[in-house]
Simulated assay, not measured.
Amino acid sequence: MDERDLELLTLIEKQGRLETSQLAKMMDMKEDEIALRMRRLEEQKVILGYSALIDWKKTPEKERVTASIDVKVTPTRGRGFDAVAERIYRFKEVKALYLMSGTYDLAVVIEGATMAEIANFVSDKLSTLDSVISTTTHFQLKQYKHDGMIFVDDDDQDPRMVVSP
């Protein structure tokens, strides 16, 4: 991997919809060279996929409930936290999973249709794993920024009256 690969990765991370022709112009390279680099980076699993960041509250789709769960676990002999993490990230509800420093070992981000669905996931699936010692669940109330994108509209006005002393 060279500096051009890193530059390409930075561009598509910020603007994943850029076409090969646009990337070629921005990087002063040929389109076929850009396509070749991207294909190689995909094969090497450096580029894992492409996704759009959606503000679901602006769609007719019902909003989803998102929760972050702090999990304290007993690591597995010989595999550490990896074996436990593998069991957890295989659940379809899990959107992200991180090994953390501090009081808790793992941070799990999940989505569900309701708070009850998330509660059932924690009580029926997550906390029943042998290596899970404890969990703390935090429900996301409002999203302001995600992956560098701001979700608050500038035209959103606070309807509360200003009160000053």
Results as ranks from 00 to 15, higher is better:
Ser51Pro: 00
Lys25Arg: 15
Glu43Gln: 15
Ile34Phe: 02
Ala35Asp: 00
Lys57Glu: 07
Val46Arg: 06
Pro60Tyr: 10
Arg64Thr: 07
Gln22Pro: 00
Val71Glu: 11
Lys58Cys: 10
Arg39Thr: 09
Gln44Cys: 05
Ile47His: 03
Tyr50Asp: 07
Arg40Trp: 00
Gly49Arg: 03
Leu48Lys: 15
Ser68Thr: 13
Arg37Glu: 00
Gly49Phe: 07
Lys57Ser: 06
Thr66Phe: 05
Lys25Met: 13
Ile34Gly: 03
Thr74Val: 09
Arg39Lys: 09
Leu41Glu: 00
Thr59Leu: 15
Asp70Arg: 13
Asp32Ile: 13
Glu63Leu: 12
Ile69Tyr: 05
Pro60Asp: 13
Glu63Met: 14
Asp70Ser: 13
Trp56Ser: 08
Met27Gly: 06
Met38Phe: 02
Glu33Ile: 14
Ala24Trp: 08
Tyr50His: 13
Lys25Asn: 15
Arg40Met: 01
Glu33Phe: 09
Val73Phe: 10
Thr59Asp: 08
Thr59Cys: 08
Ala24Phe: 05
Val46Leu: 06
Glu61Pro: 05
Lys62Ala: 12
Ala67Cys: 09
Leu41Met: 02
Ile34Met: 03
Met27Ser: 05
Lys25Tyr: 11
Val71Arg: 10
Gln44Gly: 10
Lys62Ser: 10
Glu43Ile: 12
Ile34Ala: 06
Glu42Leu: 12
Lys25Cys: 06
Ile69Cys: 06
Asp28Met: 09
Ala67Asn: 06
Arg39Ser: 07
Leu53Asp: 14
Ala67Ile: 04
Trp56Ala: 03
Ser68Arg: 12
Val65Ser: 07
Glu61Asp: 14
Ala35Thr: 00
Lys72Val: 14
Tyr50Ala: 10
Pro60Thr: 12
Val71Pro: 12
Thr74Lys: 14
Arg40Lys: 09
Arg39Ala: 08
Arg40Asn: 02
Leu23Asn: 05
Arg37Lys: 01
Asp70Val: 05
Pro60Asn: 11
Thr66Lys: 03
Val46Ala: 05
Asp70Gly: 11
Ala35Lys: 01
Ile54Gln: 08
Ile34Leu: 03
Ile47Lys: 02
Pro60His: 08
Asp32Glu: 15
Trp56Ile: 09
Arg40Gly: 01
Lys25Ser: 14
Leu23Tyr: 06
Arg40Tyr: 00
Met27Ile: 04
Trp56Glu: 03
Gln22Asn: 00
Asp28Ile: 07
Gly49Asp: 09
Glu63Gly: 15
Lys57Met: 04
Ile69Leu: 04
Lys25Ile: 10
Glu63Thr: 13
Ile54Thr: 07
Thr66Arg: 03
Arg39Pro: 00
Ala52Phe: 06
Asp70Lys: 14
Lys45Trp: 02
Met26Ser: 04
Val73Gln: 10
Leu36Gly: 13
Ile47Gly: 02
Val71Ser: 13
Thr66Glu: 01
Glu33Arg: 11
Ser21Gly: 05
Lys25Val: 11
Lys58Phe: 13
Leu36Asp: 15
Ala35Cys: 00
Lys25Asp: 14
Arg64Pro: 01
Val73Trp: 09
Ser68Met: 15
Ile47Pro: 03
Glu42Ile: 15
Asp70Thr: 06
Arg37Ile: 01
Lys58Ala: 14
Glu31Gly: 12
Arg39Asp: 05
Ile34Gln: 02
Thr74Gln: 12
Ala67Pro: 02
Thr66Ser: 04
Arg37Tyr: 00
Asp55Gly: 11
Ala52Trp: 04
Arg39Gln: 04
